[in-house]
Design a protein around this nucleic acid. Structure first.
Length: 718
DNA sequence: TCTCCATGAGTTTTT
DNA sequence: CTCATGGAGA
């Protein structure tokens, strides 16, 4: 008993021991909410003697779930494997595997990832004869997701409705679920088969939900249903850290909760144990600009700490150099690579750092971006596995029937599809019934026998499960294809081999026959994220988006590319969006424990384009206005604060157009180029691949290219 | 009919 | 810059 409650403050203690009835904990950043969650669970099992199987803990990411399990392993003296500690999505997956057959699906459904889902929408859009320029699949897909998350009540366009209907039918016919379906089908199951709901209502005597501010409407409904019997529901959240409204998260769920669970006890955790006071000051100042929030001020008893540093670089290249030099300094002060994180608003910004980090031997890992399981080669091999164990998987069939190339093109597939449709069989089976003869037919038969042959290897107990990967890439010629592809192929082959360890792990993790194990693995692979595969203990610098940094903490944090036009994101238009951006900023700042750096560049290469940007509005809100702590990389130079835009040299043309460095022009012979220098009436233009050339500014061979101006103060100053 | 190469267009955040 | 698409060649 004493163990569990030791080292907790009064509010934390209260949150731990108030086990009966609904409790809502408002926990500021770094106020020890993870501690509270784990200690509460340990208290319930160890002190109240509750069986772990009666506890459900919902976290936001798989990573958080696993970390919580690891901590619990040390604290709980019972078998915690019976405890459900997972995300909403994997919890629903688990529930559906058992009972989804009661609502017309097969229990071995496959979960689609984003890419697969988009591909289906795209195919359907084309099948319905729409122009993908007008009806954009990406938009339709986003709309469908919004619809599913109840953010949109009615379907405005007929086309969208038609695509949506067909999409739903396709998913059902092929036994597929998308991410949103995991939640929705679980709700359907609970609604249509009340006995199943009751089973779980009885089972979960104690329920805990982390990051409650980021639950969306269907998720909340799920929580409400599950907790309704025992009402021992504990939610933890922080309005100021709600950054997922684009995914349908509703902060209002906090109010709803209080109305649905009358007599909710509210506990506030405001003492921060993570950051220095100076870091908290900045965070408090920024978030205070939000209109829609309950006032809350973080405080700490830790020392003041160092002033956060704001660095303005001329170019994005110089920004990297500055960060590298600071990292080296930090290392000499005794910090390790793993103490350091770089955070940014969008994933593409990480590119600026990769090359220079490699050249300077700074070990790093990038979170997000293209995850291991979404790599083409990995998905291809997984599609082979899917098709091998389930010949009727048309979706996988189409993916790899001509990968590597085996002369089975679109025309042949169309013919096969028609055959399959008319005979009501899968593509694989349609091979047998189609018109025999012709080279195309032979190619298909070849493919078919390869798949069947690999099945034999797969069920052969003398072959180790992980070795099936070698067999697949040998038999199909995938290996030969990659080997012919030089360096990039080598890299891809490495990823394929990495799958072997995934299979080996699955071999010991899952139960049942070999086929069952692979089925289990394949069905859940979409839920695996990149973050889950990274090793926390590696001594490397971490690069990630603000969103991915939620819930994490680092001794030293760099907020990079901190510029107008990037942060806040120019995609945000409404004031609600703006407030959410500010919360993202708040999340970023509060990741830092000891040192905080904010860096920006005046000029930045974005997708091969030179762009200019001004000061992010958050800089002023943080109180950097006098810029007394701006540290110049090159010490001699002084910082010109008021001149936010680079020294503009403007030249006017007779017809009224004017040029600024960075403008794009079009030259009759050389094509499009960027102005890099202006000297009197001579402009120097850089052409891609052609080097720079000088021209008279008002020469008729040159015309100015209109382009949208990415990131300028003028967007925000009006 | 398939494959390859060139041109063009598009870039938030994620389970 | 990178991915996707479409057109021309084999």
């Amino acid at each position: 008993m004493s163990d569990i409650l030791a080292n907790l403050n009064e509010s934390q203690k209260e949150a731990v021991i108030t086990t009966e009835g609904p409790v809502m904990t408002m926990a500021g950043a770094g106020s020890g909410k993870t501690r509270v969650l784990t200690h509460r669970i340990a208290y319930i099992t160890n002190e109240l003697g509750v069986d772990p199987s009666q506890i459900l803990a919902v976290t936001f990411t798989n990573k958080a779930a696993r970390e919580m399990k690891e901590r619990l392993m040390k604290m709980v003296d019972k078998d915690i494997n019976k405890m459900w500690v997972s995300t909403f999505h994997s919890m629903c997956c688990k529930i559906l595997r058992i009972d989804i057959n009661k609502i017309g699906y097969k229990s071995d459904f496959t979960i689609l990832d984003e890419e697969d889902s988009l591909k289906i929408v795209k195919d359907i859009t084309k099948e319905l004869g729409y122009n993908t320029e007008e009806i954009k699949p990406k938009e339709t897909r986003a709309l469908i997701s919004s619809l599913k998350n109840e953010m949109i009540d009615e379907i405005k366009k007929d086309e969208t409705k038609a695509i949506y209907d067909k999409y739903e039918r396709y998913l059902h016919d092929n036994n597929l679920l998308d991410f949103d379906d995991l939640i929705l089908k679980t709700l359907d199951l609970f609604r249509l088969v009340p006995e199943v709901l009751e089973k779980y209502q009885r089972k979960f005597e104690y329920i805990l939900v982390d990051e409650f501010q980021d639950t969306n409407a269907p998720q909340y409904r799920l929580v409400k249903l599950l907790a309704f019997r025992h009402k021992n529901i504990f939610i933890v959240g922080d309005q100021d850290q709600s950054i997922y409204s684009f995914r349908g998260a509703k902060v209002e769920n906090i109010d709803k909760f209080q109305r649905d669970f009358l007599g909710t006890k509210i506990i506030k955790l405001e003492e921060n144990y993570r950051s220095t006071q100076r870091i908290l000051d900045i965070a408090n100042k920024v978030i205070d600009n939000n209109q829609v929030r309950i006032k809350k001020t973080l405080y700490t008893r830790a020392n003041e700490g160092e002033k956060p540093k704001y660095y303005i670089a001329e170019t994005s290249y110089e920004e990297v150099e500055y960060i590298i030099s600071e990292i080296k300094k930090l290392l000499s002060e005794g910090y390790h690579y793993k103490d350091i994180a770089l955070l940014y608003r969008s994933n593409y910004l990480s590119r600026n750092f990769e090359d220079r980090f490699i050249n300077n031997n700074i070990p790093y890992v990038i979170y997000g971006g293209l995850s291991f399981f979404s790599r083409k080669e990995v998905k291809d091999i997984l599609a082979y596995l899917r098709l091998i164990i389930n010949n009727d998987d048309d979706f996988s069939f189409k993916r790899i029937v001509n990968e590597p190339k085996r002369k089975i093109g679109q025309a042949l597939i169309n013919k096969l599809s028609e055959e399959a449709l008319s005979k009501h069989v899968s593509l694989f089976k349609a091979i047998d019934t189609m018109n025999k003869g012709g080279q195309g037919y032979t190619n298909l038969i070849d493919f078919k026998f390869k798949i069947l042959e690999m099945y034999e290897s797969l069920v052969n107990p003398e072959i180790k499960l992980m070795d099936i990967i070698d067999i697949i890439i040998d038999v199909t010629g995938y290996k030969a294809m990659l080997e012919a592809d030089g360096e990039e192929g080598k890299e891809r082959l490495k990823n394929v081999y990495e799958l072997k360890s995934v299979l080996e792990e699955a071999d010991s993790f899952y139960a049942g026959s070999r086929i069952e194990k692979i089925t289990d693995l394949l069905s859940e692979i979409a839920l695996r994220t990149d973050v889950d595969n990274k090793n926390e203990s590696d001594d490397v610098v971490k690069l990630m988006s603000y969103h991915q940094s939620k819930g994490l903490e680092y001794k030293v944090v760099f907020l990079v590319a901190f510029e107008a036009g990037i942060f806040p994101s120019p995609m945000c238009l409404s004031s609600e969006d703006e407030e959410e951006e500010r919360r993202i900023c708040y999340v970023g700042i509060t990741r830092a424990k000891e040192k905080l750096y904010i860096t920006r560049a005046r000029q930045r290469m974005i997708f091969g384009r030179l762009t200019f940007s001004g000061t992010s509005k958050y800089i002023g809100e943080m109180g950097f206005d006098n810029l007394d702590n701006v540290n110049k990389f090159k010490e001699k130079e002084t910082v010109v604060v008021k001149d936010e835009k680079p020294k503009e040299e403007v030249i006017k043309r007779s017809e009224g157009t004017s040029y600024v460095v960075g403008d794009k022009i079009n030259h009759i012979a050389f094509g499009t180029g960027t102005i890099v220098m202006i000297n009197k009436d001579i402009i120097t233009v850089a052409f891609n691949g052609l080097g720079t050339k000088k021209f008279l500014a008002n020469h008729p061979s040159i015309t100015k290219v209109q382009e949208w101006y990415y990131g300028c103060d003028k967007m925000y100053n009006k």
